[in-house]
Design a protein around this nucleic acid. Sequence first.
DNA 1: TTCTAAATGAAAAATATTTTCATTTAATAA
DNA 2: TTATTAAATGAAAATATTTTTCATTTAGAA
Lengths: 144, 144
Amino acid sequence: MRLTERKVAAILRQHSYKLTPQRRVVIQAIASNQDHLTPTAIYERVHQHHPSIGFVTIYRTLEILAQLGLICELHAGGSCRSYTISAPGHHHHLICSNCSRVIDFTGCELGKVEQDLSSKTGFRIEGHLLEFIGLCQACQREAT
Amino acid sequence: MRLTERKVAAILRQHSYKLTPQRRVVIQAIASNQDHLTPTAIYERVHQHHPSIGFVTIYRTLEILAQLGLICELHAGGSCRSYTISAPGHHHHLICSNCSRVIDFTGCELGKVEQDLSSKTGFRIEGHLLEFIGLCQACQREAT
DNA sequence: TTCTAAATGAAAAATATTTTCATTTAATAA
DNA sequence: TTATTAAATGAAAATATTTTTCATTTAGAA
């Protein structure tokens, strides 16, 4: 279950960040769709209805949201810096390579792989990055 | 088993790319160590001994090597565009978050997860991105 | 050794990101 | 409500990254 705008706003406030109209708008842009968006794409969306908002504010807001885990940074979808709204708990993403739609999923089943890796290499493993990429149903049809 | 400089050079030639001294040097920079390197880091290394080599050549060479699957692009290690020498077959990477050392591994065991995902979402899955990040033994000791 | 398509380097252009700083404002406290 | 203040904003400049362009050079085939 993805985080709602309301929830993101509440968490921002809990961490004593101010809830400015600009931040609301950025959060809304990200939370109100299923896609992943680059900073530039977010800027463009937001700018249409709020022309006074600056690029710097986008970047600053993204940094805060990412740091609090309220948005996730994706890598497999072409751009290396592309964001989607987060969800509670450990989860990963399935991304449509055509339309950028993002589906969350849980249950990555990597515990055993991680243990094996750790014992074989001596690494203390801190985390992992997992994304699946593919074509969603709509885009499969479209591709004929 | 990682690709050797010799092997990378041979594959380049097989695809009728010219084996220029500049390309050799870039390949060597990447193949001769265990780390992942950004284009800038590669440029700096290469530039020390070959000051005439240009940034553009680095980028162009990286693009070719990546396209042929001779180098892998990593994401979890901080930079979003960082390369390490490839290995034959399906494999993934374990990265030290402190020293950038990269360990390859096989057996990601994601077939079942992929099938589940595919049947639940209707996606035609094209691939996945998997990286583990952690601290290697040397860096664990160093961190006391 | 010659030839030619491919590759190179330098410079400029385009794009992306961060820093700086004067001004504005959200949210607390009075 | 209003005053206060630390935090946030926007604009501009600085920096970093990546791509394009083009005249010159060169690897490798003939």
